[in-house]
Design a protein around this nucleic acid. Structure first.
Lengths: 198, 198, 198, 198
DNA sequence: TATGAATGAGCCTTCATTCAT
DNA sequence: TATGAATGAAGGCTCATTCAT
């Protein structure tokens, strides 16, 4: 039963199993046992690789964060030059499509943010995530409107994205909700840009 | 020594202690013991009144929901006739002021929504909350714009409120964020109404 | 299966079971389970009463210490006036007879002293025990010889008692060894007193 | 990079690391990992060399025993002919100086003796140690007094040495205590010899 | 009604040992 | 010879729940 693997691959397997477990059983229902069962490894190996459950959870959040970040980069870089408006659309798309690909992953996010209030490290990671969305939006809006207006536009858009994300996640049919959300957020951006031209 | 209390009062004490415990220790850090300590009663009595921890948590959510609902009613009824726009403002205010008064209460909400995904009863309660905000908004918008436009306005506004709530809750200075959020949501409503007049 | 007892009695039962377990399985072989099995109670109850295994062990040492102390007091008080020499004999007797009554209890002491090096609380308790023997001896010697001589006599006697105790405990037939030890320590005291008279 | 070492040297490195670990963390705090870290080798290699942790511990005790034995031999042989009294002094010195050089090593002994009660092999080794001290003392006393007297003298001296060792080890300033102990034991020997001359 | 002692399943973690490399 | 990934039983401890008082 001894099946050595590449250390890096093992760690990622465990992180994936962790996310899957949270998706299936919730954070409070996720135990070392549920994770090890999903990853098909022994319970001891998890601590061997991550030290503690808490550390593993933090690694899992970092993994999600990194996925979102690299997803946006890839999406933006897919074509050469794109307009600022196009860029805003891409940001919206990335935030929703990455969840469409794995709808229940958003439940995992939600669990983590709920825990963030009582975990400094999770809180820190959440702040990074929150600020990244804001600054990405702000950067694009700056090319299209005065500074003062752009600041508010970025904030509003970030909130609308997060709000649609939250409501979609909690809705009874998340997948349909995400598609709708993406469309509405783009419409909102249109409105802001049209108003800016006046 | 032990003055018998109204059963109803006892139950509310326990619910309040539950909310306080989640605020202080998080949902995962909240146990029957932390609750009984905060409520200053024995652990046995809690089960006697609520049957199980799960039932108690559901009661706590219902309590929060009811608070929000009655808060809005009171706020709307405080003056006689108010315009539809004024009504929209009041809805926004109610959503944020209740959290400004107790910023950490919003963390309790967040914990509940995270659990909602894996608890039918919590999920049901969350749906009620989500729909109530939406239908309240829709009702007011219907007086100010065509149906199709109102549907989207209500959805967007609900999302923006929830998004600002989420981001404010998770921010490092929630209190300031809530004040800012309220202002921005009102500005957004203004925008929608101005556009509707065209 | 719910058998409430007097809280104090329960605590003493658990302490007794702890001592029995260390006697049977050694300190490293003593687990919450071995203790709970010997006390015929559930594992949870131990933490309920003592908080942690470490706290329980400290209570067990305190119990042994108290037994030794009260044993000496009782032994000294059994007759009215006794001579200083008789007093010294009684101290020796108490130290060995308490172990003859329960020969394996001395193994428990040994385990605790070995742990004392890495536990401040155990170390503190050991110091109390060590000093008590010394000062009891010193008090009696002072009545029989000059101060300077008495200091050394007390130290030597304490060491001889502890040394015989250690060697007897580790010997293959501890019970016989303890009887022999008691006799030799008394002889040693005689020697000191005879020399003092010159 | 890895210069192969003499197998024997490797084994001794591991034993030394074991003793160091017990000194630092206690017997219960000593794991294969703490040992391998101190010896700077892998955990697998330890089992490869010693078969099991228990075997390693026994090797460590044998190592200490051998050190003590050869220490005495060397000390006795340092000069040509010495008197029986001088020989007794040397035995005392050897027992205390080895611990003065490394006071915490005595804690390791103590840990081993505590475990001896529940391990036949450790018990056997302890008996060897105990008897060696006794027979060494007896051999010297026999040259100075009648057999019956010598038997008791050897036993008392052995107990006093062990007693002082135990009390010194457990004292708050072991180093000073060991020096004092050595002096007192020599004084005790003087007393016995003076009394023997009458 | 009210208490908290008592239960025991289940949690995270540790650790000696094994074994593929 | 040497490594450390992998195992899994066992450890201490937590906690919702029950129940004698």
């Amino acid at each position: 039963m001894n099946r050595p693997k590449q250390q890096h691959q093992r760690r990622e397997d465990i992180v994936q199993a962790t996310l899957k477990s949270i998706e299936l059983y919730g954070l409070s229902g996720t135990t070392i046992k549920t994770i090890s069962a999903l990853a098909d490894i022994s319970v001891g190996l998890i601590n061997h690789h991550f030290g503690s459950k808490q550390k593993l959870l933090e690694s899992a959040v970092r993994f999600l964060l990194e996925q979102l970040r690299s997803g946006l980069l890839q999406h933006l870089a897919s074509e050469g030059d794109i307009s600022a408006k196009e860029r805003l659309y891409r940001i919206v798309e990335t935030n929703f499509t990455s969840f469409q690909q794995s709808p229940s992953a958003s439940r995992t996010w939600l669990c983590f943010w709920a825990e963030a209030a009582h975990s400094p490290e999770l809180s820190r990671l959440q702040q990074i995530n929150s600020r990244r969305l804001y600054s990405n939006l702000l950067h694009s809006y700056r090319a299209l409107m005065p500074r003062q207006q752009a600041l508010m536009a970025a904030e509003m858009t970030a909130s609308m994205i997060d709000g649609y994300w939250l409501r979609s996640t909690l809705s009874s049919s998340p997948e349909q909700a995400f598609i709708n959300a993406e469309q509405h957020c783009k419409t909102f951006i249109d409105t802001l840009l049209v108003n800016a031209e006046h």
